[in-house]
Amino acid sequence: MSGADAQVQPRKSGLTRRQKRALSRGAQYVVFVAAVIALAVTADWGRLKNQFAQWDLVKQMFPDVITLALKNTVLYTMSGFVFGLVLGMVIALMRLSPVGPYRWLAGIYIEIFRGLPALLIFVFVGVAVPLAFPGTEIPGGTYGKVALALGLVSAAYMAETIRAGIQAVPKGQMEAARSLGFSHARAMVSIIIPQAFRIVIPPLTNELVLLFKDSSLVLFLGVTLEERELTKFGRDLASQTANSTPILVAGLCYLLVTVPLGFVVRRLEAKAGEATK
């Protein structure tokens, strides 16, 4: 038997490739089922139910968890996103500027704010800014502070995304615009940036999901009762009642927004993929 034959003919001693594949898949199912059973048997369901699924506590949370906590979470997120988008746009354009110091400044900003934990930025905004500029109030109170902190963090990420989007627009677009008599700035605004935004909508929506979760850090700024968002609201109620059910409910409220958003991102990505085909 030649060497080439040995590769295509099923060997008598061992299994065929098909049989091996079936065996491997079967083993994976066995491991999965075993893990689920082990978890179900070993967990103390009674105590879990007691601690996390008290129905009367759930009822007690409504409607405040939606009308107050979720509303505040969305408000914090949106204000941070808008501020971050504007700042990110400016930084992205600085990063692409022919003026050296602008590029360096933008680069330094991105490195710093991408490298620091969001929590530290919140502490910085809450403590250092009032110290550095005594007597100045950040407009909008807590809402302003959150918008500033979330905006500072997300601007760094969004700047890089937007820069990549601008650079993904084919060079010929700028050349066509310039040869029609557009100035560089006007071509950017009318031709390049609208196309860049189409490209970056999916990653920007992803950034929105991340911000949505990061808005929970507002509890480190210290908030009044009316300013509480989902995490703070859930935690407060959990410590009042010595039961973790509110935390589970708060978590589900996050999913109520992030899961549909994630679905939207995947749809947008699929659409963008089709358009570039």
């Binding site: 084919p170 010929g172 677009q173 050349e175 066509a176 615009a177 310039r178 040869s179 029609l180 008599g181 557009f182 100035s183 031709i191 609208p194 196309q195 189409r198």
Partner: peptide, 20 residues
């Protein structure tokens, strides 16, 4: 240069229409 380019039309190999 923008004023001069208004008097010069240019057609490219890759068309370069604005797709949006």
């Amino acid at each position: 240069i923008d004023a001069v380019r208004r008097r010069i039309g240019m057609v490219f190999q890759q068309f370069n229409l604005f797709p949006h």
